[in-house]
Write a protein that binds this DNA or RNA. Structure first.
Length: 914
DNA sequence: CGGGAGACGTA
DNA sequence: GTACGTCTCCCGC
């Protein structure tokens, strides 16, 4: 919302909506009883109606293209030459739209010789100069060039707003680079020539290297490859393309942005027009305003409450207070109810509530739509009122709720000042704890597996791809069925899965004592987010980019031709066909591999692989981390909010996406720098506490091997101790090479490796690797026994277990295919160790969170989990003492036959803390 | 535009 | 040799 007290200027790109509305299928069907098409009229007017609602103080101005040629045709006769003429059934709708808008009292601008874009550009330019905030309502991406701190775009059809950050996120370039960007790409539809084969990717790449079109053109000689040639060919016409793509900011207008004001609507004229074009919804609005001039027509009122709710036999749609109150009382009296939110986004930080569904008894569910805003959507209950009624229920810890992935719902509701409690059962976690690998744990899959029922899929009602609707755009009847079904199915799933889970007490305990309590802890971490120094990442991107450019030139020289360094396919041709370098390894599909290990080896004899390796490493860093992380910073919080997934991995680990905070680089020096950008807020420190050797300790505990237990109990360097045993030398005579080999053996054991794998890892002959392993098992016989027992349990029972009884089923353990069987055996060895480590850190997180909640001190926050490490933000005044306590809590998360050791680091950023 | 392949980041 | 997620390229719809 604008901060100035002046009304914002709302510029409606009428022509853009006219065409878009004309192509919307359900609008196309609209016409008056005598056959005059009215789809485009309805579409455009509803856009305006929606804008009036969203910007009650807005000064709305509608702008349309004029008929005939514009200055761009003078500049370039072929401009828009490929456009088919306007269809007649659209043309006939233009005059009525203009007439109605005028009757509404809104300023309407149709200026000869320029396009609507140019008029909008001019007005927004004037407004910015006059200190007026501007919102441009358009579906046209070219308008992104007009965005500045005081001008933003809104696509009223999709409800997507775009400010400067939004432009950068969407296009990858700043608003002031949009013209350069458009010029480089050209436009097929408008017949604007660009650079052949230059699409968004290439345009962004060039404009990142050189900030303006002019500089890109100056450096045209340095661009390699076909597209470089194309760029040089295009040099002559690029200035023209730039001109054509530039929206004019100085169209001569009779009134400026401050002078254009609405006049009083001509209600009688409007009524006549609405009747003529049979626009019932607008006519109803008019009557409603007439009757109750002081109230907002969109507000729910008593008249609505008196109407009977639209209810089908099973699933109800609640549109009135009376029906809602009936449900509210039933919910209050229920022991348990299923509950689901419908929203505009899968991103919990961006999601807006659209509706809520409930189910108390299988087969009977209700949907409460709250914010469906498609054209002709019925009046709905007011969101704030509904939430006010429900808040005590959702926050009650004695009124139990069951849901599917409730962490999402809890996160969304937290943005509406509702702190969910009483989260008793999550069907996603029930299924995951029962069997993590039998199925994916989304509702569609669960309904299919446990109920044999095919649900309505979201894509069935919303479509897919770029044209997918958001939930608010879906017709309430359809949405209601879908949403109510979700609540109903959730309850049915709970009734189907929970009894199965209850039969095995260890699995029930993993569910009830680990996963369910962890849900709100993860929600808190996600919601709090992590702080990122975007400027530092931008600098890193810059310097990596410069180095990448050098490497590319070097690689092309070495190859004797230009090629795409990030295409394994092209590289494979260069290396193995053109340079005739011998093939060392093939990919699973049989192509010659260019994997890291291969290039590493080839780098000893040839120059090119080394360049490729550096290029690959750096471009990964740039694209995945230094470029990407700043884009994921939340607008409101200025922090990055990952999603932790609790029901994804086979072994019980968490996973993290958007962004994945569990694979931030650390191994290479260059990559490690990224951790410098993970910073603490003012006066705070980053504290990283990780478990030392947790999986090996678990192996010692599970196998109860005396030698291994002793080594840990005495606090020895376990790799060194292992080396002493394998190589039969005294502990203080172990060489660093021997320690390295022993470490590889230790890791290999956790991964269920073979002598073959170890040999490859250590680059020693297979018999040597076998000798290491034999010696190891001789010195640590219980480990050998444990591995054998685990394999046997896997084969006999079809699953293995963690220390706490979390099961991992291994269907492939009986596979005929030897490769799959072997792989399942390795997974069987690994799962108890990886899974127990996951259980332990989850228990530690619960204990830590319990303690933090009890402190009730906002200066202590747990922010991240990276499998064996927890990261915190702690105020500097209490950091030492708090860290000591946290280490203590983590050390005592569970008791094993070997000590559990957590080690802490404190710093201003994650790199320092690690 | 979606998805597989190949590559590479982490524990 | 285990467990993940994300990037780019590139094919096919």
């Amino acid at each position: 919302m604008p901060t100035s007290d002046q009304s914002p200027l709302i510029l409606v790109d009428g022509s853009s909506y006219l065409f878009r509305a004309y192509h919307v299928p359900y609008l196309q069907a609209l016409s008056t009883s005598d056959g005059q098409p009215t789809g485009a009229i309805t579409g455009v007017l509803n856009m305006i109606r929606s804008l009036k609602k969203d910007y009650p103080n807005g000064n709305i101005i509608a702008i349309f293209d004029a008929k005939g040629k514009t200055f761009r045709n003078d500049m370039y006769p072929e401009y828009k030459a490929n456009r088919p003429p306007m269809p007649d059934d659209l043309r006939t709708q233009i005059a009525p739209i203009h007439e109605i808008i005028t009757a509404m009292g809104l300023p309407l601008l149709v200026i000869d010789g320029v396009e609507a874009d140019d008029v909008i550009g001019t007005l927004s330019h004037q407004a910015t100069a006059l200190g007026i905030e501007t919102v441009i309502s358009t579906g046209d991406k070219d308008m992104a060039q007009l965005v500045n701190p005081h001008v933003r775009l809104i696509n009223t059809m999709t409800n997507v707003e775009m400010d400067e950050a939004g432009v950068i996120e969407k296009f990858g370039v700043r608003p002031d680079q949009i013209i350069d960007y458009l010029a480089l790409m050209g436009d097929k539809v408008d017949n604007i020539p660009g650079v052949d084969k230059c699409g968004p990717k290439t345009a962004v790449k060039w404009l990142t290297a050189y900030p303006t079109l002019k500089e890109v053109m100056q450096h045209a000689d340095e661009v390699k490859g076909k597209v470089g040639e194309n760029l040089r060919t295009a040099l002559a016409h690029l200035p023209l393309s730039y001109e054509l793509a530039t929206i004019k900011l100085d169209v001569a207008l009779e009134q400026n942005a401050a002078e254009l004001k609405p006049s009083a609507p001509d209600t009688e004229k409007l009524r006549t027009l609405y009747q003529k074009y049979e626009l019932k919804r607008l006519l109803a609005d008019l009557d409603a305003v007439d009757k109750k001039p002081d109230s907002l027509v969109t507000e729910n009122n008593d008249e609505v409450a008196d109407l009977p709710a639209a209810v089908d036999s099973e699933y109800g749609i609640i549109l009135d207070k009376t029906s809602f109150n009936v449900w509210l009382e039933k919910l209050k009296a229920a022991e348990l109810f299923a509950f689901d939110t419908e929203t505009t986004s899968v991103d919990y930080m961006k999601a807006k509530l659209v509706g809520l569904s409930f189910c108390i008894e299988v087969g009977k569910a209700a949907y409460v739509p709250l914010a469906h805003d498609y054209i002709d959507a019925p009046e709905q209950l007011e969101l704030s009122w509904v939430l006010e009624q429900l808040k005590p229920l959702l926050e009650s810890d004695t009124l139990f709720k069951v849901g599917q992935n409730l962490k999402y719902d809890a996160n969304v509701l937290s943005h509406y000042d509702i702190a969910m409690q009483g989260i008793a059962f999550d069907t996603m976690l029930e299924s995951y704890c029962l069997n993590s690998v039998a199925t994916r744990h989304n509702m569609d899959a669960l309904a299919d597996k446990y109920l044999g029922y095919k649900t309505v899929h979201f894509e069935d009602i919303a479509g897919k791809g770029a044209k997918q609707l958001t939930f608010n755009q879906i017709e309430i009847e359809k949405a209601g069925h879908y949403a109510a079904e979700d609540a109903d199915i959730t309850l049915r799933l709970h009734e189907a899965i929970y009894p199965q889970l209850s039969k095995i007490s260890a699995q029930l305990s993993v569910f009830a004592d680990i996963e369910m309590p962890l849900l709100p802890v993860l929600a808190r971490m996600e919601q709090h987010g992590v702080l990122i120094d975007c400027d530092m990442l931008a600098e890193q991107s810059q310097s990596i980019g410069a180095r990448l450019a050098e490497l590319e030139i070097e690689a092309h020289n070495l190859a004797g031709k230009s090629f795409n360094l990030s295409s394994p396919k092209q590289l494979q041709v260069i290396l193995f066909e053109e340079l005739k370098i011998p093939v060392i390894k093939k990919t699973p599909k049989g192509a010659p591999s260019t994997a890291e290990e291969v290039l590493q080896e080839l780098a000893l004899d040839y120059p090119l692989p080394k360049v490729i390796l550096e290029n690959r490493g750096l471009s990964k860093l740039k694209s995945t981390y230094t470029d990407k992380l700043p884009l994921l910073v939340g607008a409101k919080t200025n922090r990055v909010h990952t999603s932790y997934h609790q029901a994804v991995t086979a072994t019980g680990r968490l996973s993290s996406t958007d962004p994945n905070l569990q694979n931030i680089p650390i191994r290479s020096e260059e990559g490690r720098k990224i951790r410098l950008a993970f910073i603490a807020p003012p006066e705070h420190k980053i504290v990283a506490i990780d478990y030392s050797q947790i999986e090996l300790r678990i192996m010692a505990h599970l196998s109860d091997d005396p030698g291994l237990v002793k080594a840990f109990s005495e606090g020895k360097d376990v790799h060194k101790a292992t080396a002493a045993e394998i190589f039969a030398v005294p502990l203080d005579e172990v060489t660093s090479d021997q320690r390295r080999s022993a470490k590889a053996v230790n890791f290999g054991l956790i991964y269920g490796m073979s002598a073959f794998g170890l040999a490859k890892q250590l680059n020693v002959p297979r018999h040597t690797a076998q000798a290491y392993m034999d010696k190891y098992f001789e010195r640590y016989p219980n480990v050998s026994q444990y591995m054998e027992d685990t394999r046997q349990q896997a084969t006999e029972k079809g699953y293995v277990e963690t220390l706490f009884g979390r099961r991992l089923y291994l269907p492939d353990i009986k596979a005929k295919n030897a490769m799959r069987k072997k792989a399942a055996e390795r997974a069987a060895i690994n799962a108890p160790m990886q899974g127990t480590a996951a259980d332990i850190i989850k228990k530690a997180m619960l204990a830590v969170d319990d303690w933090i909640q009890a402190q009730n001190d906002p200066r202590i926050k747990m922010t991240m989990q990276v499998h064996d490490e927890l990261i915190f933000e702690i105020h500097q005044d209490i950091v030492e003492a708090t860290t000591a306590t946290l280490v203590e809590i983590m050390n005592n998360a569970i008791t094993m036959s070997v000590p559990l050791i957590a080690e802490a680091g404190i710093g201003d950023n994650w790199e320092q803390a690690h």
